[in-house]
Simulated scan of single mutants.
Amino acid sequence: MLAERRQFILPGQKALHANITVIPTGELEVKIQEEAHPLKADFEELYFYSAGNGTELVCKAPLESDSVRWQLHLENKDARELAKLIELAEEELEILMRDL
């Protein structure tokens, strides 16, 4: 099980650089180069919402469905790639747990 890392340029006026790590144990970590604090979430806290020419990645607090902890605006192709990486990590963990 290896973590997958990708760098995406977030659309918008500032063109921020997001370094995203998909950790196979069910965690996502986002470090925006231009900002100091990392964003973290468990896979089950993440939601993808299509918004025209982009996709919103939203992290919601687990017990409060309306409480948004953080969100990122991604290009559609980047959001699809990230969703696929998360899906593959979940499958990999499931296979590993079954084999144990």
Rank of each mutant, 00 (worst) to 15 (best):
Y49H: 14
I32E: 00
L88V: 02
I9T: 14
V68C: 03
G54L: 06
L72D: 02
I9K: 12
H73M: 11
P24C: 09
D66Y: 13
Y49A: 12
S67K: 15
V68Y: 01
P11Y: 14
H73F: 11
L28Q: 00
D66N: 14
E75Y: 09
T21A: 12
V58Q: 12
S50I: 14
S50M: 08
A15P: 00
F8T: 07
E91C: 01
A18C: 00
F8D: 07
P24W: 03
L63S: 09
F43P: 10
H37V: 08
K40V: 11
M1P: 02
M1F: 14
P38S: 03
N53I: 07
E35M: 11
A41V: 12
A51Q: 14
E34H: 06
V68G: 04
D78H: 12
E64S: 14
S67Q: 15
Q13P: 09
Q71G: 02
Q33N: 08
S65Q: 15
D99M: 09
A41D: 03
I23C: 03
G52F: 13
A18E: 00
S50W: 03
E27P: 01
N53S: 14
E4Y: 10
I9G: 01
E75D: 10
Q7P: 00
C59Y: 10
A89L: 01
H37L: 11
L57A: 02
E45P: 04
E29T: 07
N76D: 05
E27I: 00
E34K: 01
E29A: 06
M97H: 07
I20S: 00
T55H: 05
R80C: 08
G52I: 06
A15F: 09
I86A: 01
I95L: 02
V22E: 02
T55Q: 07
A79Q: 03
E81H: 12
E44W: 03
A15D: 05
V58T: 13
E29F: 01
Q33Y: 00
N76K: 10
G12I: 04
E90A: 07
H73N: 08
T21D: 00
G26W: 07
D99L: 11
D42H: 15
H37K: 11
L100I: 13
F48G: 05
F8A: 05
Q71K: 09
K31F: 01
H17D: 07
L39I: 02
R80S: 15
E64V: 04
L16A: 04
A15W: 12
R80M: 12
L82S: 10
E87Y: 08
R98T: 01
T25N: 13
K60P: 00
K31M: 02
T25L: 12
H73Q: 09
A36G: 10
E64G: 05
R6F: 09
E91N: 08
G52K: 13
L82H: 12
E90M: 05
L88E: 11
L10M: 06
N76Y: 02
V58P: 00
L72V: 06
P62S: 10
L2M: 08
E90I: 04
E92H: 04
D42R: 14
A89F: 06
E45S: 13
A36H: 02
D66P: 02
P24D: 13
L57E: 02
E81M: 10
